[in-house]
């Protein structure tokens, strides 16, 4: 098995990511539709913006895929004209990096739902850090900030963690994941003469 990503891996990752880039743009209007409710109800929807990293990683299962996917999704969103402009690129890099770190901590060998949730939480943490640097949410009053955090983390777990995991589970049933996943030791064992 060669190290690094092959052309197939990169192309599939980027295509998945660009597809989610379109979703990301459309999600902006959902986000703003909830904004008038106030009290950070919109933050609950924020988790959708971390989903590309998880979906791509759980499909392809190789190092670097999560980071690449989140960056590609962000640049797709940026090139198509997101109302947030260049910010999405900066956020994308950080979120992808944080998600990638979780997968790295499990040595890219664990694909349980808990890993998906952990990486969603990590990506969310990355976005919150960026918000502190950029949006100065640190200046919000304490109760308001708490509400903001709870909404965002819960949303991340639901969308980027649970939803992403089950999305890939259903995709597995279509058989398409066999095309792009590296052969596991189980596959080799099946080839052995009994």
């Amino acid at each position: 098995m060669t190290k690094g990503l092959k052309l197939t891996d990169i192309l599939v990752t980027i295509v998945i990511a660009i597809a989610f880039g379109i979703v990301y743009i459309l999600w902006g209007s959902v986000y703003y539709a909830l904004k008038p409710i106030g009290l950070h109800a919109d933050q609950f929807m924020y988790g959708m913006w971390f989903i590309a990293a998880n979906v791509a990683f759980f499909i392809i299962r190789k190092p670097g895929v999560a980071l690449l996917a989140e960056i590609a999704a962000a640049s797709g969103e940026f090139l198509l004209g997101s109302p947030w402009g260049l910010t999405v690129l900066l956020y994308g890099v950080v979120q992808g990096l944080f998600a990638e770190l979780v997968f790295m901590a499990f040595k890219y060998k664990r694909f349980h739902i808990s890993v998906a949730i952990l990486s969603a939480i990590a990506a969310c943490l990355g976005s919150v850090l960026m918000d502190f640097a950029y949006g100065e949410i640190g200046d919000l009053v304490a109760w308001n900030l708490t509400l903001f955090m709870i909404a965002r983390f819960l949303g991340s777990i639901l969308f980027a963690g649970v939803c992403a995991y089950y999305l890939v589970k259903v995709l597995e049933a279509t058989g398409v994941t066999n095309l792009v996943r590296p052969a596991s030791s189980k596959d080799y064992a099946e080839l052995d003469q009994k």
Binding site: K6, L7, T8, L11, V12, I14, V15, I16, A19, V55, I59, L167, V170, L171, T174, V176, T177, L179, V180
Partner: peptide, 15 residues
């Protein structure tokens, strides 16, 4: 699901 699986298949073929 159909859009993702279709896109993955297409991307794989292109590669």
């Amino acid at each position: 699901i159909p859009m993702l699986s279709g896109s993955i298949r297409r991307a794989h073929r292109i590669a």
